[in-house]
């Protein structure tokens, strides 16, 4: 490995960290970034009582779609890495993200009741816990 001080050295170290376990940390970091944007937009709608239209809702829906895509991609990469704890975590991640997605679809589909938004929030908090567990576990094991 080259020196850690140079720019190329830093790049090599980062690439080494994020490519562990068949690129699981890279995918988990991408999903985490997407989840944070989802949360910023969704929480803005919930806190400020914004109408279900416009930029916040578009940002929320698009990043939510990417959350599901990254969650399924994470299952693929953890399966290739043959790391059982990571596989279990990514299956739990898919279940929680799907729970949040289905609650969100009910909410957006016309059942504008708090219980569906609460389901979205509960699924979200489980998703962010499992995703960050995957991210931090995958760079270490």
């Amino acid at each position: 490995m080259s020196s850690n001080k140079s720019l190329l050295g830093i790049y090599n170290v980062m690439a080494d960290i994020f490519s562990r376990n068949q690129y699981t940390p890279a995918l988990a970091a991408a999903e985490l970034a997407s989840l944070i944007i989802t949360y910023f937009a969704g929480m803005g709608i919930a806190v400020y009582r914004l109408p279900l239209s416009g930029i916040p809702l578009t940002a929320h829906i698009y990043t939510a779609a990417f959350d599901v895509i990254f969650a399924i991609a994470l299952y693929g990469s953890t399966t290739r890495a043959q790391n059982l704890p990571l596989r279990v975590l990514s299956v739990l991640d898919i279940f929680s993200v799907l729970g949040a997605a289905f609650s969100g679809l009910f909410y957006f589909g016309g059942f504008v009741e708090p219980i569906y938004a609460i389901g979205m929030g509960t699924g979200f908090v489980f998703t962010i816990v499992f995703t960050s567990l995957i991210l931090f576990y995958a760079v270490r094991h």
């Binding site: 949360y39 929480m43 816990v129 567990l133 991210l135 931090f136 576990y137």
Partner: peptide
């Protein structure tokens, strides 16, 4: 709400590491 999310990410990091 925003600072909560960064706190829970750090807590998960403590568990995993």
């Amino acid at each position: 709400a925003i600072s909560f999310i960064f706190a829970i990410i750090c807590t998960s990091g403590c568990i995993a590491w």
